[in-house]
Structures are given as C-alpha cells and as structure tokens.
C-alpha cells in the first residue's frame, strides 16, 4: 500500500518544529509501524537526508521505549498494544497518517519524535522502592506469605512499562496513572507497608514538581494504556494519599 505521512520534524530541543509530508509506497500489512518508519528512513538516508528520530528498543511491547502519537492517539488506533506492536494491516492504501511526539510540559522534545521522559524516573527515585538492602541478609521468601489475590493485583499494577501514553492521552498531561501503578503495587503488598506514608507523599510531590497536570478523572489514560493499567489504581493512590496526610 501507499501512504501519506505527516511527520513532526524538530532539529533539537531549542529549535522550532514543523510537520513535514512524505509519501511512502511498498508498505505491507505484515510490517510493524516501526518497520514502516525504517523503510522511510532507509529512503531518506539514501537521498542523503537525515532520518526521522524516534525511540525504540525491544520492539515487542515491553521496554516502554517506543511512543508516538498516531492520528492523535498514543500508540495508534489498536488497543492494548504499543507502537512497536502495531501492524500496518490496521491501515488502508492511500491513508494519511499524522505522526507526532508525545506532548507534555514534563516531556520536552529532544529531536523529531523523541521526547525526554526522565521526569518519570525522578518520580520513581523519590520513593518508588522498598528500603531493603540488597546484599542478601533477608528472611526466607516463603516467610512472607501473600494472599494470591493481592499478589496478582500487585502484579497487574507492576506491569506498567513507563511509556507515558497516559500522560500524552490526558488533556491535563497528568501522570497519575503511572504514579498510582507503582504506589499500588507496594500498597497491595505487606513489604510496602512500612514506608507507605512517605512513599505516596514523596511521589506525589515529585509528580507536581515535574510539571505534570492534575487528574480530573476523564479516564483517557486507561483507554490508551497499552498494558491495561486500571483507574482503580488512581483511586487507591488517592486513598493512600489522604490517609498519609491524616497521619501527617
């Protein structure tokens, strides 16, 4: 099939960017979206032009590197997949596809479609851990039995890949779904209880410092999240946050 691509090109963080048109033939349904971009890039390189820059690594939906707003949707039109898992059979011959970076104040553009998501790391650094030493002097793993249901729920929250689609989908650019996924994982486990108060306070504070917006419960994040992280996590974060503030 043949496609009309409208792609955001921006030289670096300081430059102004603009949409650029490309027409691309020879695209097959079996290709992934990123393989389609590979072909475009190969053509640009052969013409001596700079290829389109985008983040990617695992290409199987787990590392969270790939991003892209595709026709206005983070990770494109398919549900429960990342951009690297999106296949071209979801598009038709002659389609126009608009490709932009994830946009948010806390995700500044580095170049073209690549953005800086280190604000997510700083939220994790502010409290997304259990303060246990790693040199091996812990109790036997089975000395902490955990209800299967709670363990499964913690696992569901823990599958967040840190891609940022939730932020890109949100009109307020809020990072609540991402932050709540980590808070929930630990809130659901006995190991997480000791530091629960400080954790939720510190992570929420950092989230605000980074310039993410407020959550107004629109639910767009849950719809676009490629890992199905549920809004229940946000409710849990709110409960944790209020009870933490009550404790002081």
């Amino acid at each position: 099939m043949k496609l009309n691509l409208k792609i955001w090109r921006q030289q670096d963080a300081k430059s102004k960017g603009k949409m650029t048109d490309y027409s691309l033939g020879g695209v097959e349904g079996d290709m992934s979206f990123l393989e389609m971009l590979d072909i475009l890039n190969e053509q640009l390189i052969n013409k001596g032009e700079e290829p389109v820059v985008f983040d990617h690594d695992c290409r199987e939906g787990i590392c969270g590197s790939c991003s892209l707003m595709i026709n206005g949707e983070p990770h494109g039109p398919d549900r429960m997949v990342t951009t690297c898992q999106l296949h071209m059979r979801k598009f038709n011959d002659g389609d126009t596809i608009v490709i932009e970076p994830f946009r948010a104040k806390a995700f500044p553009v580095i170049k073209d479609l690549m953005v800086d998501r280190t604000s997510f790391d700083r939220i994790q650094q502010s409290g997304g851990y259990i303060s246990v030493n790693t040199s091996g002097n812990t109790v036997d793993a089975n000395a902490i039995p955990i209800n299967k249901h709670a363990a499964d729920e913690a696992m569901d929250a823990a599958t967040c890949i840190g891609c940022g689609a939730c932020v890109a989908a949100c009109k307020n650019a809020s990072a609540m779904l991402f932050t709540s996924a980590k808070v929930s994982q630990f809130a659901l486990l006995p190991q997480g209880q000791v530091e629960a108060t400080e954790r939720v306070q510190n992570m929420v504070r950092q989230m605000d410092l980074e310039g993410f917006g407020n959550c107004t419960n629109t639910g767009a994040c849950e719809i676009e999240c490629p890992k199905g992280i549920s809004l229940e996590n946000i409710a849990r974060l709110n409960r944790e946050y209020y009870s933490a503030n009550l404790k002081g």
Binding site: P145, K148, L189
Partner: peptide
Amino acid sequence: DQCVAQGVPFAREYGGL
C-alpha cells in the same frame, strides 16, 4: 529472598506461598 523483600510480585499459590 532478596527479590521478594524488594516487592517483586512473583506468582503465588492459593496458600500464599
């Protein structure tokens, strides 16, 4: 042991182990 202490959510049986 180490990973469980860190909060890694390994799969569990109904008895919690």
